[in-house]
Design a protein around this nucleic acid. Structure first.
Lengths: 216, 216, 216, 216
DNA sequence: ACTTAAGCGAGACGGTACGTCTTGTCTTACG
DNA sequence: CGTAAGACAAGACGTACCGTCTCGCTTAAGT
C-alpha cells in the first residue's frame, strides 16, 4: 500500500510511551491496539471510534489505552505516525507524465481500496488536534518523497529547472483527494490519468516556475 | 461571500419543517438557531458543536432544536442548504485563465476569510451523513454554476469544444481546497493564480477532452 | 359494582366544568375521556397514565384535556368523583356478622375483580393532591352509607347502643384493603368472612363503644 | 423508630452492588445516597423524588446513582431493604391485648412521627415494581417477627392453640394503616388501643382459628 | 535467581452530551 | 366560542463515552 497502512509491520518511533520496555507485553499491546483502531475505523467509521470499542477489540483494558495514548486523538496520531515514513520508492517510467500517472494510480488505489483506511484516517483527523498534526507530518513526508519525480524530469530537461516540485505534485494529486475525500464521489475512469497529464502539461509549459513567463 | 454564508440573508427552501407557519415565532426561531450554529462553529470548532450549546446561544430550549433538526447532522445540513443556491454570477474577464483566476481568488477568500465559515462547515460535515450529503448538494450546485466559464471559453475557441467543463474546474480549484482544508497550511502567495493558470494551460492543450490526443 | 366504577354509567355532579352543556359534545367528550382514563389505568397502570395517551384513546386533542381538567390529578379526581355517590343499599341479612360479611365480599370482589379499577385508582391517588382529596371524599361517602348496618344491629340489640359505627366498619374492612392494596397478596379463602366475623365479635363484646368496659 | 428507618444504622445486605469494596468511597456514597432519598421523601414527597434531586442532595453525580441503583425504584427498594431486618423484640406485657396495644402504639408512632418516613415510603412504593417488592419483603419480615406475640398468648392458654397468628396481627394493625395511609386522616385518640383490643377479643373468641366454631 | 518498579486489570467516579419523554402553556387557524 | 393542531419551555429520564482515580496483581528489567 502506498499510503497509510497498518502499524503492525512498521518500525516507528514510539511517540506514546517512548518504548521503555520493548520486550514483551507492552509492545504486544501497542500493536494490538493500533490494529484495533484501524479495524474500528474502517468498520464503523470515525464517529464510532470510541476508546471503549478499541480497548474491547484489542482485548485490553480501557485504562491501559488511556494510560498510554491519553485520548482518541493520541490513538489516531499514533496510527498515522505508524504509517508515516514507510519506505516508498517512486517508479521511474522515463517521463514526468508517466511518473505522475503511476503515482496517481497508487493514490487512487489507496483512496478507493477496501477497507478505506486512508479516507477514514483523513476524515478522523478533523476531530483531533493531535491527529491533525500527525496527518500534516504524514503529508509533508509523502510530498517530500515524491519530489524526486519532478527533479528527475528537470534533470532530463522535460521541464524548466526552476519548476517548483511541490506545486507540480499538488496540481497532479489534489483532484484525486478532492474527488474522493471532499466530493465523496465514486471512482471515475480516467480521473487519475487525466489529472497527471494536466499537471505534466502545465509543468512543461512552465506554469510551476516561481516566476511563470507568459502563458496563454 | 462567494461560498457558504449566513442563512439570515438567504431565501432557501425550508428542509426542516417545510415552513408550515411562516408568520412568526417558528421562522424566527429557525433563523436564531441557524445563526447560532454558525457562530458556535467558527468560535469553538466543529467538535464543540453540541446541540446544547447551539440551543443556549440561540436562546431556545434544547428540545426545540431536537424536535425540528433531530440532531447535529440535521443542523449542519440545514446550514449548508441555506448557503446552497445563493445566486452567483461569474465575472467575465475575456479569457479562461482570467476567469479561473478570478474564481480561485474568491474561493481562496472564502477559505481564508475570518471567520472561517466554509472551512469549518466542510470539516464539520465529516461528522454526519446528513451534513455530508448536504455538502455534496452544495458542491454540485457550485460546480454546475461555474461550468459557464468553461463553456464561454469553448465558444470563444480558446479550448477544444469537447472539453469537459467539470474536469477543468476541479483541476483549477482542487489545489486550493487541498492546501487549506486537507494540508491545513497557511496562505501562500500566488497559489490561487498558479492553480488557475495551470488548469487553463492544460485545458488549452486539450487535457480535459473526453479523448485527449497526444500530449507530452 | 360496589365501589369505584366506570363513569359512563354514572350520574355524578361534574366537578370539572359543572355541566354547562349537558346535552352535547361537551358532555360526550367528558365521558369519552373519563372512560379512557379508566382503560389506560387498568391496562397500563398508574405510571403510564399520560395525558397524551388518554387524549389519544378518547379521540380528543391534548389541549382539550388540559383545558378542562388542568392536569393528571384533575383527571383522576374526576374519575373518583364519578364513582362517588353511586347509590348503594346494603343488604340486610338479619345479623351484624351477616351484613358485614356481605359487605366484605363485595369489597373483595371490587379489589380483586378484573380489571382492577379500584386498586389502580387507590394507587394512583397517591400521586396527586387533587386525586387524594377526591379519594377521601369517596371513602367518607362509602363509610357513611355503610353505617346503617351498624345502626340496624344496635336497634336489634345485637350490640351496645353506644357502639361507634365507623370503628366497626373500619375493623371489618381494613384487613381487606391491607391485604390487597398494601401487602399486595393474592386472594386468600376465608379472608373476607373472617375479618367480618372478628369485627362482629368485637362489636358484640363492646370493643367499639366510646368508653369500652372491661374486656379480656 | 419501630419501622422503616435510616440505613445508616442498619446492617443490611447490600442488594445494589454486593459490597465489593466495603472500606471506602463506595460504601460512603451509598450511605449518603440512601440518606438523601429519605430526606427528599419526607421533605418533598414521593412525587418529587427524582434521581437528580437525590444525587444533588447526596453530593454525588447523577450518573453514579444511575450506575448503582438504575432508577428511582432501585433507590426506594434499597432504602426499604435497609430498614428490613432491623432487630425488633416485642415487649411482653403478660396479655395478648397488652402486647397488641404496645405494638399498635409503636406502629402509630411510626406512622405519625415526624418526619413521616414510613408513610412516605409506603406511598412511594406504589411508583415502582422494585420498591413494591421490597416493601412486600419488609411487611413479611415484620409480621413474621410479630408472630411471637400470638404464640406466647397461645402458650399462656389465652387463645386457642390453633389460632392463626398472622390473622390476629393483621386484624390488630390493619385499621392503623387504613386510617393513616389510605384514609389519610389525622390521629384519633384511642385508635391504636381500640384496634388492639378488638383483635384480642376476637382472638379469644376463636375468630382466627383455621376452623372457627360457632360465633355470634 | 531475585528483587523492584513499570505496567496492566478491574472498577467506581465526576462529568458532558445525548436523544427521548411528559408536562403544561401558548398561539394560530378552523368550523 | 370551543376545538384542533402543533410549537414551545421546562425538566427528568436513562444511556454512552470521556478521562481520572485507586487498588491489587503481573511481569519484565536490572542487579
Amino acid at each position: 500500500m502506498t499510503h497509510l497502512r497498518s502499524a503492525s509491520a512498521s518500525e516507528t518511533v514510539d511517540r506514546a510511551g517512548a518504548r521503555r520496555r520493548p520486550g514483551g507485553r507492552t509492545e504486544r499491546i501497542r500493536l494490538q491496539v493500533i490494529e484495533a483502531v484501524l479495524l474500528e475505523l474502517v468498520e464503523s467509521g470515525y464517529d464510532a471510534l470510541t476508546v471503549d470499542a478499541v480497548a474491547a477489540r484489542a482485548g485490553v483494558h480501557r485504562t491501559t489505552v488511556y494510560r498510554r495514548w491519553r485520548d482518541v486523538g493520541g490513538l489516531l496520531a499514533d496510527v498515522v505516525d505508524a504509517a508515516t515514513g514507510t519506505d516508498w520508492e517512486p517508479e521511474s517510467t522515463g517521463s514526468l507524465r508517466g511518473d505522475l500517472t503511476a503515482l496517481n494510480r497508487q493514490i487512487e488505489a489507496a483512496l478507493t481500496g477496501e477497507p478505506p483506511v486512508t479516507a477514514a484516517l483523513i476524515a478522523a483527523s478533523f476531530r483531533s488536534g493531535k491527529a491533525s498534526r500527525a496527518l500534516q507530518r504524514f503529508w509533508d513526508d509523502r510530498y517530500t518523497r515524491f519530489e524526486v519525480l519532478v527533479r528527475r524530469a528537470a534533470e532530463r530537461g522535460e521541464i524548466p529547472a526552476a519548476t517548483h516540485a511541490r506545486h507540480v505534485l499538488v496540481a497532479a494529486t489534489a483532484p484525486l483527494y478532492h474527488h474522493f475525500v471532499l466530493l465523496r464521489m465514486p471512482p471515475e475512469p480516467g480521473l487519475a490519468d487525466r489529472a497527471a497529464a494536466a499537471a505534466a502539461v502545465a509543468a512543461v509549459a512552465g506554469a510551476f516556475t516561481d516566476a511563470p513567463q507568459n502563458l496563454p
